[in-house]
Write a protein that binds this DNA or RNA. Sequence first.
DNA 1: AAGGACTGCAACCGCAGGTGA
DNA 2: TTCACCTGCGGTTGCAGTCCT
Length: 274
Amino acid sequence: MEDYERNSNSPTHDEDSDIRKGPWTEEEDAVLVNFVSIHGDARWNHIARSSGLKRTGKSCRLRWLNYLRPDVRRGNITLEEQFMILKLHSLWGNRWSKIAQYLPGRTDNEIKNYWRTRVQKQAKHLRCDVNSNLFKETMRNVWMPRLVERINAQSSPATCEKVESTMITDPGQPIDVPSPVEPGYVQFDPNHHNQQLVPASALSATSSNSPAETLSDVQGGAVNGSGYDPVGQTGFGEFNDWGCVGGDNMWTSEESLWFLQDQFCHETTSYSYN
DNA sequence: AAGGACTGCAACCGCAGGTGA
DNA sequence: TTCACCTGCGGTTGCAGTCCT
């Protein structure tokens, strides 16, 4: 995506003013980074005016927070981060900035994009609203347990206890709220029984460097094993982990729920449901 | 090979809340 | 108290890259 910015045409100018819009250039980035390093990341309108950048303060702030900030993490959303997003979204809804506080280095914009492009896509394929009970049930009872399986599978038994039933929360029960983590650290313990801080660098070294460990992999890997999202693109006529059938044979919500309940019976052999 | 469809994500927009004069 | 300005947030858009037919 960096290429997108670097290769795209130069930013446009507002007709009425001299304000630039569109992708940032390397030169603009350099100016902004230099200016923020000297004057700090506050008073964005002042920065915009004083730096000579023909950008609005809002634009400068956004560019800094979402891209130029030194601690911003880029790359795939890890399994742990996916779990946190699902869990926190079930608590707070579209409070992206609040959710982002619990995912160090991830921006609200990135999380928002993740939700819209990955999660809402699944709701679409289930033919249900992302806020519907059916979708929430699917997320809680199918997707999150699978994430846990994957997380456990990639964790060393010596260093990470098997994640057990209590992380799969009862729909009627509140989910325990984790605490915001200190910058530069990633906190992950789905149970919150073994709260621990793990250096973000360590986590990214193990998880984010694995391109296949994406949501789509979690969704379809067990069935199709292709590494390519079978739900969003292909997988017609095949069951996927969301308990629906793609393409023209898409299940109705009722059928999905029926499958889900059946699936859930199997899930509970591994995860007891409190 | 070509072109249409789809995807992912950076960036913009509008609004609300906070703050200070 | 009111107004103007600033900041932050969530929603939306635009577009390059990728995939599919």
